[in-house]
Design a protein around this nucleic acid. Sequence first.
DNA 1: CGGCTTCTTGATCAAGGTCAACCTTTGTGG
DNA 2: CCACAAAGGTTGACCTTGATCAAGAAGCCG
Lengths: 243, 243
Amino acid sequence: MFVDCRDCPLRSLPLFRTFSDAEADFIRAIKIGHQAIAARRDLIREGDDHLSVYTLFSGWAFRYMMLDSGCRQILDILLPGDLVGLQSPLTGRVRRSVRTATAAVVCRLDGDALRALFQEHPSLSEALVTTLLYEEQRADTRLLLLGRQRPTERLGYFLLELRDRLLGREMTSGEAFDLPLSYEQLADAIGVSRSQVGASLGELRRRGWAELRGGRVGFADCDGMAAGCGYVRTPEQEVRTLI
Amino acid sequence: MFVDCRDCPLRSLPLFRTFSDAEADFIRAIKIGHQAIAARRDLIREGDDHLSVYTLFSGWAFRYMMLDSGCRQILDILLPGDLVGLQSPLTGRVRRSVRTATAAVVCRLDGDALRALFQEHPSLSEALVTTLLYEEQRADTRLLLLGRQRPTERLGYFLLELRDRLLGREMTSGEAFDLPLSYEQLADAIGVSRSQVGASLGELRRRGWAELRGGRVGFADCDGMAAGCGYVRTPEQEVRTLI
DNA sequence: CGGCTTCTTGATCAAGGTCAACCTTTGTGG
DNA sequence: CCACAAAGGTTGACCTTGATCAAGAAGCCG
């Protein structure tokens, strides 16, 4: 499978910045090709030193870190359009891994050639910095969540944030979406135990906010849930650049 | 007080990337001037929409977020050389605040003019992206810490990371340093309660790793402490750019 | 296709961890 | 000398965890 960047269905989403022809040509030139990956496979392993950069084209994945004790912390959920592994070519070895949650397709880019972006496409590098700053904002919010929120609020926030990100990618209407994550993965993402995930899901249901059944989350009262979980929508639109 | 960027004592630290003459001229041109700030003052307040960007010149500060409940989470400690508030001019309004811990001096830059950096200094924008990716790595580690570590390890990790960052700035010999943070601020930084900070400090002392007395941390066994707290030194050298 | 294994969900429970509140001590500056 | 802030410790109440188990779903293999 080879999808020309011009025809990339992600690119037409209003979520992503529009490219100039020169920028599109550049990205197409450093694109190596698409690559299909099965579910639950590591795309990048801690300590890897390779130079590839990927864009998630379809499917779900997540970045994570492990402790020696075997504990895992999921740092972020990756959705289509997200850039994966930019660290390697720029900062060298990285201490985190990336794993698919579902079967996925990635668009593989030549990491070394990507560095020419800064020399040749200033607007694109500004957009990249803006995207990174936006990611930083999301990371800060996750930090607040893990440091100062109760399990139920963490889970509620997590689900609401996912919903908004999926809305931007037109992957949900907003009422419900398929959540391809197990209890254990949810637990590792919000920093609680598996049993706590069960209890928190029960509480979300009891309050009439949301429900997880058969791998699908349904939202009954987003506004109430957002208020109860301290969720504030951060507009993602027109901020992200798709490389 | 006005310090010419060429004479900036921070710039000569091996921690920071060396600048070309053209880059130094550019930074000097967008520098508005130094500004002294008292301890415990907000430099940036949540929701502010101003266009200034700062570099912390001397003193300690921290980024933080508040919840409606009044809970605070300290997101990161800012040390001399750190860039503050880059988000505002690029992404617009931000949801976090920056407060000084000690009396501090900041170097104020024209945020709008800073955007010309991408057009005019490609190497500098690559260095900036690398610095942001390095910050992301630190944020990921804090996430792991908050999600999956016990209070004592969180505190130990926090202190070891601070020590390494101060070493890079030649602000400590490595044996001890002044820590201008209250118990409450430590608690807000590592996501535990004040009483837990006391208990954790006691445990660090009991294990013969480190001790906090009179606002000064002393390290007795860094290697043992690093092993016990899961700390892995991430070399900060030659990664950071000082704008 | 059927039977086997493995994984996931969802619950319960005791053990242990954490918090907010309170108090005393220490140190600082007026 | 006093007022005030922070350090440092204690307590009971509450929350979270890890273990365990049973039922169901999903995947694998002959």
